[in-house]
Every structure is written in C-alpha cells, then in structure tokens.
C-alpha cells in the first residue's frame, strides 16, 4: 500500500490523520479511493472536470506528477504520495 501524506489543511477530512494508506495503481485511482474512504476531500484536490487544481501539487516520491504522467502516473506499493496545496500564511 502507498502512504499518502495529508497536508494540514485537508486533515479535517481524515479525522486528523496525517497519513493514510491506500492500495492503488495510479494517482487517479488513489484519489478515487481516498474520496470513497474520506468523502469531500476530492473537491479540495481536483476541479469539477477532474483535473488537479492549479494551486495543489501531487508528488509521487519527490517528483511532481505534472512532470510525470499527471493523474496517470503509476503508484507502487511503498511509494509515498504527498499532496501539497499552496498556503499563504506568514501569519502577519
């Protein structure tokens, strides 16, 4: 199973868990599985056409999927998948 790193802003969908383990063959399948176990989270990652939002990045290992095969990027067991949204705070 791959380990998905949930960023702080999305942990309300995972009951505060910082990591979720998911078996999936691709990033797309991984997001589908994540949505079925944690409803509501997909909308924060993908737009209504299913594309990854422009202020969110997904990394498999340390590589950004935009520079791999996008949502079709394969995910293997033992991969660490990171969801990294833009955050604004400098806490002014």
């Amino acid at each position: 199973m791959a380990t998905v790193r949930i960023p702080t802003p999305l942990r309300k969908y995972t009951q505060g868990q910082e990591e979720v383990s998911i078996a999936a063959g691709s990033v797309r399948a991984l997001i589908d599985a994540l949505e079925s176990s944690h409803p509501g989270i997909r909308e924060r990652i993908c737009d209504d056409k299913g594309a990854v939002r422009r202020f969110v990045n997904i990394f498999v290992g340390d590589e950004d999927i935009r520079f791999l095969d996008g949502l079709d990027t394969p995910v293997k067991d033992a991969d660490e998948v990171s969801i990294v949204p833009a955050i604004a705070g400098g806490v002014g």
């Binding site: 802003p9 990294v84 955050i87 604004a88």
Partner: peptide
Amino acid sequence: SIFRFEGQ
C-alpha cells in the same frame, strides 16, 4: 509559508 503545524 506556514499553516497550523506545517511550513513550506
């Protein structure tokens, strides 16, 4: 940038 317990 920072948010709650996380920084980039």
